[in-house]
């Protein structure tokens, strides 16, 4: 059933008759051409973003990447604040999402009674289907007031007073900010990570688990000592996939991040991600202006970041597909 057998069989077919080979040549050419087109597409995206951002790179040089000043009035642009925001919200989102996703995967593969598995599994996957603008609106109209009125004041009053880590929770309870954005992102990536984990957990050969149960292991011990070590690489790959998604999320973050061009020390402070900055400021950037070019340069940086994360995730995930 592997593709090598398939092509061996079909190559046999290809050796017959000249009329067959014309049709075959055309079709094969079409397929291969489409494949090359996809390669060219990615190349074109990288190139176009770079060309668009070139004026900004040229003006500020490499210091654009770590410049801390984003001042549209003075036409000075530096990318470190949105880059920092992108990375920190995504990593926070992972910290929040991975335990929950793992819990869901564990529940669905080991604990849940059979009749519940499909509906609950489908419901969790439907979370992934909800468009991101819905997350943004729901986040702003439902989560933000909750944060502003109950959660943030409570945390600021309690944890904010602690000596060493109090500064992490300081500031007025706007409700929006880095933590809220990370929370919304976490909810968005939970289904991706949990779906990957579920698929991967189910590839563990039953005999391993059965032997462990035979020795008297509890369900959790089987998960912790057998399943996770077996699937560790793919689990990390799935987590990186979730990270890749979180890096590029635009609409969900735009509503709740607060668009501040400074790095706030507090988790409840406002920030910026690359995607939300581009979305918010695009309308007021004229074509040909340095600001538009700075936004496109930011897009290029985001692409590089996503590319690295997604490539690593793929390397970790793919071997499983060949099994």
């Amino acid at each position: 059933m592997s593709s090598s057998t398939a092509s061996a069989v079909s190559d046999l077919a290809a050796t017959r008759g000249s009329s067959a080979s014309t049709g075959d040549r055309i079709f094969a050419g079409l397929c291969k051409g489409a494949g090359i087109f996809v390669l060219i597409l990615l190349g074109a995206i990288i190139v176009e973003l770079f060309i668009g951002g070139w004026p900004a790179f040229r003006t500020f040089g490499l210091s654009f990447v770590w410049g801390a000043n984003w001042d549209p009035v003075a036409e000075e642009f530096g990318a470190i604040v949105p880059i920092y925001g992108t990375i920190i919200t995504s990593i926070l989102a992972l910290l929040l999402a991975v335990p929950v996703a793992f819990g869901i995967a564990y529940f669905l593969t080991e604990i849940s009674p059979m009749p519940l598995r499909r509906p609950v599994g489908t419901a969790v996957e439907l979370l992934a289907a909800v468009p991101s603008i819905i997350y943004g609106m729901w986040g702003f109209f439902v989560i933000v007031p909750l944060m502003a009125q109950y959660i943030q004041p409570a945390v600021i009053d309690s944890a904010g007073e602690l000596p060493l880590i109090g500064w992490l929770f300081a500031g007025p309870p706007f409700g929006t900010g880095i933590f809220t954005a990370a929370l919304i992102l976490a909810i968005m990536i939970i289904p991706f990570i949990s779906a990957t984990m579920r698929d991967v957990f189910q590839t563990v050969p039953p005999v391993f688990k059965e032997s462990a149960y035979g020795l008297g292991c509890t369900r959790w011990e089987v998960m912790w000592n057998i399943v996770i070590p077996y699937t560790r690489k793919s689990v990390v790959g799935g987590i990186m996939l979730g990270l890749g998604r979180a890096l590029g999320e635009t609409l969900a973050v735009t509503f709740v991040i607060g668009n501040a061009n400074r790095i706030a020390t507090s988790l409840f402070g406002p920030g910026n991600t690359i995607a939300s900055l581009v979305a918010l400021e695009f309308g007021e950037a004229e074509a040909g202006s340095l600001k538009l070019s700075a936004l496109l340069a930011l897009g290029f940086i985001l692409f590089v970041l996503s590319f690295i994360v997604l490539a690593v995730s793929r390397v970790l995930l793919r071997p499983r597909a060949g099994q």
């Binding site: 593709s3 398939a6 092509s7 494949g35 090359i36 597409l41 990615l42 890749g244 590029g248 635009t250």
Partner: peptide, 28 residues
């Protein structure tokens, strides 16, 4: 990818690129 590439380098590259595009930020 399924019928013609059969482990060729081009096929691997196309598959890799397609996976990247799958999760690439749509704003880009």
């Amino acid at each position: 990818l399924s019928e013609y590439s059969a482990g060729s380098k081009l096929g691997d590259a196309v598959r890799f690129v397609s996976d990247i595009l799958l999760s690439a930020p749509s704003i880009l």
